[in-house]
Design a protein around this nucleic acid. Structure first.
Lengths: 345, 345
DNA sequence: TTGAAAGCGCTACCAC
DNA sequence: GTGGTAGCGCTTTCAA
């Protein structure tokens, strides 16, 4: 029996070695198998109470923590649900939704891991994710997932690849987040109130096209047949940009503008007011997201309120797909939009 | 030689098995060792170019992706840097900082994993994190880490446990985020302008005490000796709450208020104006964070601008601690605050 | 009720 | 240059 602990091959000064289940077994005077049974409450096997206690105490004393990698290597699958993180600022709505989702997934026994993916293209990212062998991947459209990327993930053992976003990806379960609906709401709201020359702000910030494009489309679609015009207005999120746009406002001949979200809306509305354009008299302004701060402007900002299904709902869907990847349980729309009329339209 | 693939023990319908390095070796007609050498560009060993090509092609064809768990099990350590995610909304400042940090860490060869920790208490969380055997943990004060939790992590092999936040934790490297300095800036700014009865908004939302407490202290400390009073004002982030506070404003006899951040400041300022309190005539209002939207109010909001050292800076610190956990390289302050005077003070 | 041992995928040491 | 192989920590079947 080798008593000499096999020292790590030099390098950094030998640190106190990490305790393993073998150490626990040794201390408790039982076999590794027994340790595993006790610590995992394996029901298929009966272990005497005194033994259980000894094992538990030994584990406690050593500060033993099971090694997730070893466990999942043995098990052949992980319980990791990987959520690629978005480099784009997504606002409080997604933030809340994300928290709910993570909480619900953990209750279902999954390990939720957000993987920092900024600066990786779709296929690099998919490979990097696949190395962790997640059982599921839920992406919010932050990284452009390709059909090939989906395939890589599936072949690495991912049972569910779910994309939340404006457009589906082949091979993945797509849960549409109906951005067109958001634009649609705004379009209908404005047309109903008689506006006919409608501007739509398109943020120039990278990463937002995935959202702004469909919102624009939604407005376009909503106004067809009403005789209204829709004009895209690129805008950076900065005061000077808004000022410049406001300066040439009269020449644009617009009587309303849907500003992508409340932040852009507040920015633009301020610039318009400062330039002498009255709101909603000369031009109506509409935002989206129903931020608290939007209620504080004068006039109060009309907006599109987006209700998202609870994260719990999506967590359930993930779980169902993991359990039976072949059945396609359509979750329906996770997002519902409705216009909130205040004073700016 | 067993040719029968050992089918998974029933359960879900047998899926196409995930390719391993052995499969690549078989297809390329080489040994697993050679595959490993080629795919890892092991410099200690020379492999002929034709062999390399064959291996690469085989890997490509099979869609082989190395198994991170197996690799780190073998290596005895991971390259995971674990960042517990905060359930509290932390604002665009931290968001940006976080992105930079992640990017920089990845460039240094680490795998950045954000671990969803909401609803776990400090010690549960530490255990859960330790299962992944991260080489480093960087926490932003979202989860209350205890000395015991730090010990669990260290014993599980974490070489760096770094807390960013208002107060240090025993055993961890603490990088102070000087929230007191933020309050201090505001205090000095207000006192210099002659204000003597200063309110400080304390958000009622859970999880923010860690920030608001030190900010309040900072104000208190900054005004000592000036003869100014400081009064804490609990406030929920909602219009009604702000309205109620504004209604009893005259009775409070305050000539200035530091509102924790720009959002609370805008909320309160609106309520004050609506209640007929002039700003800054009757009462000065100061925020913090220098949000874009704060510049849009009338009067424009004075604020405390917080500059954070680049994430790259912190990434370097993490890397240094990982390489030499015993030396204590103090990184200095990561945060610098300064007052920005606009119109509301 | 408990123990022995195989083997998950991978890398690194040593032979050839 | 390349292959054989031990062993990382864990679970689970089989035997005692």
């Amino acid at each position: 029996m080798t008593q000499t602990p096999p020292r790590p091959p030099a390098g950094p000064p030998a640190r106190r070695p990490v305790p393993t289940s073998a150490d626990v077994a040794r201390l408790a005077g039982v076999s590794r198998a027994t340790v595993s049974y006790v610590l995992n409450d394996t029901s298929a096997v009966r272990i005497s109470e005194p033994t259980r206690r000894r094992v538990r105490e030994a584990a406690e004393e050593l500060g033993y923590v099971p090694h997730a990698a070893a466990r999942s290597l043995r098990a052949g699958r992980t319980r990791i649900v990987l959520l690629p993180t978005a480099p784009v600022p997504v606002g409080p709505l997604y933030g809340h939704f994300l928290n709910e989702l993570q909480w619900a997934l953990r209750r279902l026994g999954y390990t939720v891991v957000q993987y920092a993916s900024m600066g990786l293209d779709g296929d690099e990212a998919a490979r990097a994710w696949a190395e962790l062998r997640p059982v599921a991947v839920v992406t919010f459209g932050a990284v452009e997932l390709t059909p090939h990327g989906v395939d890589v993930l599936k072949r690495s053992g991912a049972r569910a690849v779910i994309t939340l976003g404006p457009r589906p990806v082949e091979g993945a379960h797509s849960v549409p987040l109906d951005q067109r609906g958001v634009g649609g709401c705004a379009g209908v709201h404005l047309v109903e109130r008689g506006y006919r020359r409608i501007g739509v702000v398109m943020p120039e910030e990278a990463g937002l096209e995935l959202f702004s494009g469909p919102r624009l489309e939604g407005v376009r679609h909503a106004v067809t047949g009403s005789g209204a015009d829709v004009v895209a207005l690129p805008l950076a999120c900065a005061e000077e940009a808004a000022g410049a746009l406001a300066a040439r406002w009269p020449g644009l001949g617009l009587d309303a503008v849907f500003a992508y979200n409340d932040e852009y809306a507040m920015l633009l509305m301020r610039a318009l007011l400062d330039a002498g354009v009255s709101v909603p008299g000369d031009t109506a302004v509409m935002g989206a997201d129903d931020l608290l701060l939007g209620r504080l402007t004068r006039p109060r900002l009309s907006t599109v309120r987006i209700d998202m299904e609870t994260g719990q709902h999506l967590a359930g869907l993930v779980d169902r797909v993991v359990r039976d990847p072949d059945r396609t349980p359509e979750g329906g729309d996770l997002m519902a939009a409705r216009a909130v009329h205040r004073e700016s339209t």
